[in-house]
Write a protein that binds this DNA or RNA. Structure first.
Lengths: 247, 247
DNA sequence: CGGAGTATTGAGGCGCTTCAAAGGCGGTGG
DNA sequence: CCACCGCCTTTGAAGCGCCTCAATACTCCG
C-alpha cells in the first residue's frame, strides 16, 4: 500500500466502477508516468490563481483543494485521498483549476494534463469515465456546500467524518468504523468553516457522547448509525459500487 | 428574447466561447428539440433522489439546483438562468443528478440526455465543450461553498449579487449594474443559508449604505466597485470571454 | 533541553436565528 | 368592482451558537 502503483491501480479500479473500461483503456492508464514526489505538510502545490497543466495522483497523505480570501483565510472545497486524482478538471480546462495544498506530509505523482487528454481523445469510454469521475467530485462538493450552509457544528462534523470514513473504506485505507484522518484540528476547521477552538469542542462533544474515539490521527466510530443520523449522512452521492454498498 | 431559439443560441454561443466549435457542431446543437414548457413557481422539476434522463435548457425564469435535508429545509447549490443548461452532468451520469426546482414562473426546454450524449460521442470538440461547461459549473459551486463558509451575511449577499449581475450581463439579460433577480427573499435565503428575516435586514443595510437599490425584482447596483470589494468578488471563476471582460 | 506547532479549556461578545406581528401586493371570485 | 386571501416584505425583541481573546499543557523533533 501507498506505492504509486497501488495508487494508480486504485484510481483505475474506481474509474472502472463508475464507467466500464476496456482492457486497452486500463492498460493505457497503467502506462501513465508514476514518478512519486514527497512533499512536506502545508505545502502549496498549486498557488491561488496559478495555472498548472498537471493533475495529481495522491499516493499518501491528503491534498486539499481550497479557495483563499483576500485576508488569507482559506476554505477547503475538497479533500483528495490516496488513490484519488486531484483536479481532473484540468484535462478539459487547463487554466481554470483550484489551488491545492498538502495537509500533512504527502506523496503524489504529477500527471501531465496532455497525457490524460491524449488518452481521453483516443477512447470515448475513457472520456466518459473521466467526466463521470469529475461529476462525482462535483456531487461531493454539493454536499460540502450543504454542510457549510445548513448544518450546525456537531452535525457538520458528523457528516464530514462519515464521508471520510466511507471514502477511506472505498479505497481500502481503513473501514468506516476505523480510519486515519491526516489533518490537524485547524485544517479540519478550514474544511468545515469552524475555528480550531470550536473544532476541538465539537470533537470533544462527540467523544463524550460515545459516538467516536480519537487516538492521535486514528478515528474510531463507536456508533456509526447514530453518527450518520446526526450528520444526516446518506452515502448515495459518493456513487459507490453496489458491491461495496451491500457489504 | 426569452424564446427557446434565443435560449439555445445563447447557450451555444457561451459553449463556443469556452471551447471552439465547428460550424457542424453548432448546427447539430441548433437541431436539438426546442419545445418550450411553462412551469409555475416553486415547482420541483426533479425531486430529491429522483433520477431523470433529461437536461433542461432555461428559457425564462430561474431554476435552482438544491439538496434537501431530512427536515425539509433546502440548500440551493446553483442558480440556472436563461440561456443556461441545467444538469449537464446527466450526459455523463444519468442517474446522479441533483434535484431541481423553479423559483418563479419559468419556461424551459427538456433535452433528452441521449440526444446530448449522441452529439458528444459524435464530436470530440463538443465533448470537450460540454465538459468545460460542467467545469465552470463546478467552479461556481466552489465559490458558493466559500461564500457559505467564510463570509458574513453582508459580504455573502454582495458576492451573490455580483455573481448574478455578471452572469446576467454575460447572457445579455441586463447589465451588472441593473438586472432582474426573479427570486423571493426566502429563496435568496435558501441560496445563502440565511433566514428570510436576515436576508431582508441584509438587503436593507446594503440599500442604506447606498450600494444597491431594489425596485420589485429589479436590482440596481449603485456602487459596483464597493459592492465587489465587500463581497470579495473576482469574476475570474466565471471564465468570461475576454472580449466581455474588457468591456 | 528548547522551540514550534497542536490541543485543550475558560470567559465574554456578536451575528444570526427564532418567535411574533403588522403592512403591502397581486390574484381570484363573489 | 372590490373584498378577500395568500404570499411576500418589513420590523422588533430575545436567545443561542460560534467567534474572539487568552492562557496553559502537550508532543514531536532537532
Amino acid at each position: 500500500m501507498f506505492s504509486s502503483i497501488w495508487a494508480l491501480e486504485n484510481f483505475v479500479a474506481r474509474l472502472g466502477a463508475l464507467s466500464p473500461l476496456s482492457p486497452d483503456d486500463v492498460a493505457a492508464l497503467m502506462r501513465l508516468p508514476a514518478e512519486p514526489v514527497r512533499l512536506r505538510g502545508n505545502f502549496d502545490i498549486v498557488s491561488p490563481g496559478g495555472g498548472f497543466d498537471h493533475a495529481f495522483l495522491v499516493v499518501s497523505g491528503i491534498l486539499a483543494r481550497f479557495v483563499q480570501l483576500r485576508d488569507g483565510r482559506r476554505q477547503f472545497t475538497a479533500f483528495h485521498m490516496p488513490g484519488d486524482i486531484a483536479d481532473i478538471h484540468r484535462v478539459a480546462t487547463p487554466l481554470a483549476g483550484s489551488a491545492l495544498q498538502t495537509l500533512s506530509t504527502a506523496t503524489i505523482v504529477r500527471v501531465p494534463a496532455n497525457g490524460l487528454k491524449a488518452l481521453a481523445l483516443a477512447s470515448p469510454a475513457l472520456t466518459r469515465a473521466f467526466w463521470t469521475y469529475a461529476a462525482v467530485d462535483a456531487a461531493v462538493l454539493s454536499q460540502w456546500a450543504v454542510n457549510l450552509g445548513r448544518r450546525d457544528a456537531r452535525s457538520r462534523m458528523a457528516h464530514f467524518l462519515c464521508e471520510i470514513g466511507v471514502r477511506s473504506e472505498q479505497s481500502a485505507l481503513g473501514t468506516r468504523n476505523e480510519f486515519i484522518l491526516e489533518a490537524s484540528q485547524s485544517q479540519i476547521g478550514d474544511a468545515l468553516a469552524l475555528t480550531p477552538v470550536h473544532v476541538n469542542r465539537t470533537l470533544k462533544a462527540l467523544r463524550e457522547s460515545n459516538l467516536i474515539a480519537v487516538d492521535g490521527r486514528i478515528v474510531r466510530v463507536i456508533n456509526w448509525p447514530s453518527l450518520a443520523a446526526i450528520g444526516d449522512f446518506d452515502p448515495a452521492y459518493l456513487q459507490l459500487d453496489e458491491r461495496q454498498e451491500a457489504a
